[in-house]
Nucleic acid binder design. Structure first.
Lengths: 170, 170
DNA sequence: TAACGCATGTAATACGTTACATGATTCT
DNA sequence: AGAATCATGTAACGTATTACATGCGTTA
């Protein structure tokens, strides 16, 4: 379970409300991790019960500002340094690109063309985002979120084109 | 939910038992999808109840050989062609590489060095595997499983080296 | 005949998504 | 006053992991 560590990391950078956390997940972390508010609020309650986060203020509309405690910081360090990363994760795109070869060439081409369109748009968006990050001087962890999370290896664009071409030769 | 479609795809390629399916997931598909037998057996039962797979034979040790029905093939086609891929998936590696910047340089270096070691080994294994696939004439979907699933963009190796170097300069 | 690998299943628990529900503040 | 957005929560359901449990067939 790494939702809690994502939360600890975000709040460690900057305290905030559950609502803000939800937005950060959607914005800066959306390619690497996703979590909706219905998961975040209960998780914050659990983290508080375990002493890993605490409320450091209350704002308008019943909002609470959460921050990481020392124990929380230590838990994040422990997770990063002492636990084995789970490398075997699900990748629906890889599964789909694997299974698409079960389709007849015509149908396969339709699917691959949709994928190509998506991947090209995503690559362009990523390029723009990368420039933005550069301009804002944001380095560090933003790069891997962009590169690993987007999962659009440019080399695969060529592969997609070849496969589309191949469906025309059969 | 795509476990069922992974199963339909595998059985569509070649009928087999639940046990064999588990192994195929571990071997050819491990980078793209993972499923253990405790998930696969109930799923086969459900798929049978829905008429998407059927038992076409029984072997020693109570083993059953499953195959996809016509309805199953159609369901796979429908999923590939008519459903929107879920692109927002979790990537623990990206999350870790993002959060590692919360650590002190010394600790960060230790983590990044472990990551580099893993990634270099994985890249080498992938190279060997790619050659094997080539030699066996396995093309098609195996390439994306290798490339997308492994999630080790070679460009990120350089990035890791830079970040490790950077921890020494502070 | 004992150990090992093949083969299948269930139960308990944890995690994630979608839907439901409600109240506070701001903007038009 | 009404709509939109901020803000928090719970419930129901579906999916995934880990642990438990058992029997068959082969090989040493």
């Amino acid at each position: 379970m790494s939702l809690r560590h994502a939360v600890l990391g975000m709040l460690g950078q900057q305290p905030g409300s559950g609502y803000e956390l939800t937005q950060w997940f959607d914005r800066s972390l959306s390619h690497a991790w996703h979590a909706s508010h219905s998961q975040i609020y209960p998780e914050l309650a659990k983290l508080e019960a375990e002493g890993l986060v605490e409320v450091i203020g209350e704002g308008p509309r019943r909002s609470k500002t959460w921050a990481v405690t020392q124990a929380g910081r230590e838990e994040l360090r422990r997770w990063l340094m002492e636990t084995e990363p789970n490398r075997a994760q699900r990748n629906e795109t890889a599964l789909r690109w694997f299974l698409v070869f079960r389709l007849e060439p015509e149908q396969r081409r339709a699917v691959l063309e949709r994928e190509l369109a998506f991947v090209e748009t995503a690559a362009e968006q990523r390029r723009v985002l990368a420039e933005q990050l550069d301009a804002e001087g944001k380095t560090g962890g933003f790069r891997p979120v962009l590169e690993l999370g987007a999962r659009v290896d440019p080399a695969m664009i060529g592969w997609l084109r070849e496969q589309i071409e191949a469906t025309r030769r059969t």
